[in-house]
Design a protein around this nucleic acid. Structure first.
Lengths: 203, 203
DNA sequence: CGAGTCGTTGAAAGAATTCAACTTGTGTGG
DNA sequence: CCACACAAGTTGAATTCTTTCAACGACTCG
C-alpha cells in the first residue's frame, strides 16, 4: 500500500479535527479549506489550499491526531500518502526532508504574520487581507473574477469575524467600486484602495 | 568560525525584525521574548523562550531577514550558530534535519492553535491562557511564583490586548484569590478556576 | 522639593457582534 | 401555475465588550 488517488466531492470533509492521522495528501486538482473549530458554530479558516499543495502535514507534530479539519470547496482530487511511506521517504531521502523543513518554516512565518494581524489589525483590514489572499492563492479567471467561489461565511471565518460584518463591509466596497460581485464570485477592481484598509494604522 | 557563546543583558535585543539573518541561537540560560511589531506602539509576543530553546529559526524560511525580533527578559547566555555551520550540519546529519522538521511542525501547530484563540476567544480567556502558558514555560519557584518576572505590558502583548485591560482583569483575579502577586511576580492559586475563563464558550 | 514616570482607576467613546425583522428566492404540493 | 413554507440574503438598531482617554496618587530621581 503506497499511494492512491481519491476524489472528494464539493463540501466533503477530507479529514476531521481530532481524527487519527493516517497520512498526508497532495492535491492534484480542486481547492480546500483548512480550519479549526471553536465551539459549535465558529471556525477559523487557517489556510486555503489548491492543486500542488500539501495537506495534513500538520499531523506530523508530536500528537497523532489532526489538529485541524479540511473540507473540499469544489470537487478535488488528491493523492494520499500513508504515514509509513512518508516516513520511509523521509529516512531515505534527506533532501526531501530538508525541503519539507523549509516548507514548514515558511508556513510558520505565515502563521505568525497572520497571528499578529488577527490580534492588532481591525476587522476591515483583515477582510481586505482575506480578499487579497484569496486572489493570490486561487488566481482570477478571464474576467478577473476570483476563480473559486468562496462563501461570505468562509471569508468571515478566515478573517476571524462574523458573516454580517463581512456583508456590510462588502456593501461598502461595492459602493466604492473597489470590488464587484457576480453571484458568489468576486472581482477586485482596485487592489491599491483595498490595501489602504490594511495599512499600519497610525493615527 | 563555528560557535560562540554570547551574553545578553536583560532588556537587550538579540536580533531585530527586518535584520539580516546571520544564524540561529540556542539558549543556555535566561529567558527571551519573541515578538512582532505593529505600528509604533503595539507588539504581539509570539512566544517565550528559555534555556534549551532554539531562537532565530524562523530565519530559515525563504527570505533572509528575521520576520520577528527577540529581546532578553533577563540576563541570557546563548550559543550562536552561523548559517554556514547550520547548513552544513543539516546536509551531513539527516536525523538532525528530521528532528528540526518535527520541531517546526510542532511550532506550527501551536501557532495555529493560538491563532484560533486570538480570533475567537474573549480577552479574559486569552489573558488566562497567557498566565498558564507562562507558568508552563518558565515554571515556578519554591513559593509557587512564576520564575520569571514578566511585565503586565508583556502579558498584554502576548494576549493581544492592552495594558489596562490586563490590569483590570488582574484586579478581579486577585480579589477572587485566583492569583496572588508580589511585586512583579505572579502566583496562580487556582488553575482550575483560571481555566474556566478559557472554556469552549457555549451560551 | 518639583518634575516626571509609573501604577491605578473611572468614565467616555468606539468598534464589532448580536439580535431581530424584513426581503428575496427556492422548492414543494395542491 | 399558484400558494405556501422554509431557507438564504439583507439591513438597521441595540447591546456588549474593549479600548482609549484622562485624572489622580505614589514613588523615584535629580
Amino acid at each position: 500500500m503506497k499511494k492512491e488517488t481519491i476524489l472528494f466531492k464539493k463540501g466533503r470533509n477530507i479529514f476531521n479535527e481530532g481524527e487519527k492521522v493516517k497520512g498526508i495528501f497532495f492535491l492534484y486538482t480542486g481547492s480546500v479549506k483548512v480550519y479549526k473549530q471553536w465551539g459549535d458554530q465558529k471556525q477559523l479558516i487557517l489556510r486555503f489550499a489548491k492543486e500542488g499543495d500539501i495537506l495534513g502535514h500538520r499531523g506530523l507534530g508530536g500528537v497523532d491526531v489532526y489538529p485541524i479539519a479540511a473540507t473540499a470547496l469544489e470537487d478535488t482530487k488528491a493523492c494520499f500518502i500513508t504515514n509509513d511511506f512518508l516516513e520511509a521517504t523521509l529516512k531515505t531521502n534527506p533532501s526531501f526532508t530538508y525541503k519539507l523543513m523549509h516548507f514548514y518554516a515558511t508556513e510558520l512565518q505565515k502563521a505568525e504574520q497572520r497571528m499578529r494581524n488577527l490580534a492588532h489589525m481591525e476587522v476591515k483590514g483583515r477582510i481586505a487581507e482575506a480578499l487579497l489572499e484569496l486572489c493570490d492563492v486561487f488566481g482570477t479567471d478571464e474576467h478577473k473574477y476570483i476563480s473559486v467561489a468562496v462563501s461570505r461565511q468562509d471569508i468571515a471565518s478566515y478573517a476571524g469575524t462574523t458573516y454580517e460584518t463581512v456583508f456590510k463591509f462588502f456593501t461598502e466596497l461595492i459602493q466604492k467600486k473597489i470590488i464587484t460581485t457576480s453571484g458568489k464570485t468576486i472581482k477586485i477592481n482596485n487592489a491599491a484602495k483595498l490595501k489602504q484598509y490594511i495599512s499600519g494604522h497610525e493615527k
